[in-house]
């Protein structure tokens, strides 16, 4: 009986949290932010296919 109750309770953990001082962030949210920053930076530097860089 306890196992059926404890199983769902074990699945509602809040995930991994990373903290530096007063700053606290969930690991999943940090990944999303880092991916967005990487996409933004790559979009600025990577050449677009099929185009020549203007002189």
């Amino acid at each position: 009986m306890f196992s059926t109750v404890l199983l769902p309770l074990s699945e509602i953990g809040g995930g991994i949290y990373l903290g530096w001082g007063r700053f606290l962030i969930q690991f999943g949210n940090l990944i999303v932010i880092v991916v967005m920053l990487a996409l933004f930076a790559l979009a600025l530097v990577l050449p677009f296919p099929g185009t020549k860089r203007p002189k």
Partner: peptide, 11 residues
């Protein structure tokens, strides 16, 4: 326009 040929315009 030619400037649209950039990854930043894809999102």
């Amino acid at each position: 326009p030619s400037y649209v040929a950039s990854w930043i315009y894809v999102f």
